[in-house]
Design a protein around this nucleic acid. Sequence first.
DNA 1: CTGAAAGCGCTTACAG
DNA 2: CTGAAAGCGCTTACAG
Lengths: 340, 340
Amino acid sequence: MATIYEVANRAGVSPATVSKVLSNKPYVSAATRARVEQAIADLAYVPNKVARGLTTGRVFILGLLVPWDPNQIFADPHLLEIIHGVEHAANQHDYNLLLSTARRRADAASACERWLRGNILDAAIVVETLSLQEQSAALAQQPYPWVVVGYPITGTRAAIHADDYHGAMDATRYLLGLGHRRIGVVSSVQRPTALDERVRGVQAAFAEAGLPFDESLLLVMDDLGADDGYTAGAVLLRRPNPPSAIFALTDRLALGVLRYAHEHSISVPGSLSLVGFDDIALVAHASPPLTTVRQAGFALGEAAARAVFALLDGDEPPHDRVLPTELIVRGSTAAPPERR
Amino acid sequence: MATIYEVANRAGVSPATVSKVLSNKPYVSAATRARVEQAIADLAYVPNKVARGLTTGRVFILGLLVPWDPNQIFADPHLLEIIHGVEHAANQHDYNLLLSTARRRADAASACERWLRGNILDAAIVVETLSLQEQSAALAQQPYPWVVVGYPITGTRAAIHADDYHGAMDATRYLLGLGHRRIGVVSSVQRPTALDERVRGVQAAFAEAGLPFDESLLLVMDDLGADDGYTAGAVLLRRPNPPSAIFALTDRLALGVLRYAHEHSISVPGSLSLVGFDDIALVAHASPPLTTVRQAGFALGEAAARAVFALLDGDEPPHDRVLPTELIVRGSTAAPPERR
DNA sequence: CTGAAAGCGCTTACAG
DNA sequence: CTGAAAGCGCTTACAG
């Protein structure tokens, strides 16, 4: 690899002049510029970005930390949408994405801290796949700007998340409006903050309607996948007095419930109404297509990247930005049998 | 941010000694080591990885170039599987992934060249989403090792791809064995090398059976998505003498054909047998579940990463590695109506 | 066991 | 318009 010195030699100028040509600075005579450009071409010279990074302090890399097992990340369309949104924005700013995940599942929390220490990046986005509050001290002392996709924690400069609370509230209102009174809710210990907000939204909708929410119908699973949804469906629907509707707090859980219903000939929405959350691409093609609460993962990722670029430019983005959700009514919900 | 000099000052030693403690070199007295570690803790010192990268020539970053529009990448489960496999292997080697995509669709080819020039990385993996042959000159003169997920091009140190040819041949043999003679084939101009191999595999199976392959049943679409599959299905199935089977050369195309069949009450596999390629997670849950040719995207990505780490260690991995495919027979294929 | 010095390959004031 | 010099923050022989 040729260095800037070799280029300078060949062109008969100083490295400083080559540097000026490289960065398109003015005050270089046309003749000199031409000679330098020729030398660059002759030597197929490419500036060393690490050296440049050391002097300028900018490497044009945006860190994206998703502190979770890769197997879970790549199985989660909503997370992939967030990554997509970040990549889209990074791309437009001529930044590359440095993607980091946790090595093992148990490793997730420590991965966050380890990763944040001294990586090669100008700024970072942390996806709140787990509670970050314990990491806040480590996060707070990072020398570069970072934002979170999720709920604000101590020291966050900016946080972007969907309106989980009202999204869940809307969906519950809708089910109550259809006449459902026994509504099963399937949650998970994964992604705690967002899912807790959704549970609160459900409770708020019941309270608003002056109806009691039967907490025994709230199931909190260990995981987020379709298998957990299937199990939850089994638990709820085998009860002597099963719910007439199930609100699964993620679409993947909902898809699992749907599979249980299919396999046990429980008609959806005939005998069971089913609502999901996220609106991943899959659910529109399920049979029946799922009613769900849309939260735009792409927009979340994009907004987070925008916020981080704003910080990099010295601007102060909104500290806590909440993106609206939207109830998407499809074919998996109807009035309960006794009301028809 | 504290530097190594400040740590050295506080501990009353030279920066060289701090460096030795940092990299766990021997020949540092226990007492000195303790003092240095204390100073590091006091100052919350984190070594600057860019500076370290400049001196050592290693940054522990693996570049992953997917020279395609992000919208297409994140809609393509097979590509995501490859990325997943690369991330998995990188993670295990304590490397982070620098993900790069093309800014715009038309930009794809140039993106490849631009990107390969002077990025911050130790090695790279290029996913052959389009023909790379034109980029081979630029690729060949990179100072770091790089491998391709796809077919070898001039100058490649290592290439890993699935056995597209035999995979397609197996599937075609199977359809011929069921009694199908008029087999529609849906290909695309995207991902040219792999899909061309699949077409060759189809032709080879016909030739082997001594049967003519009707080239008018081969449709080459502009894109790879389900919409193109839908269109292809329409074109083939509206013909006066429609094929009794369709082999879509990617699962996403197959899903589009399936949608067309559903919407036009064409029974699968009753009146139409359908085969895909890739075995993305979706197709096992389609109704009917799709017969397809499995190629393990995850394994491709992982093998590519392994090859690149071998190169980094000075080993020479296989120049051209071919991963086997497997025909997965599910519910979308049956003997043609006239044979039952 | 420890440190002074040089060097990695750039860019940035500054002087001319 | 051009260049000499210092500096970014480390590591690596080398000498002691």
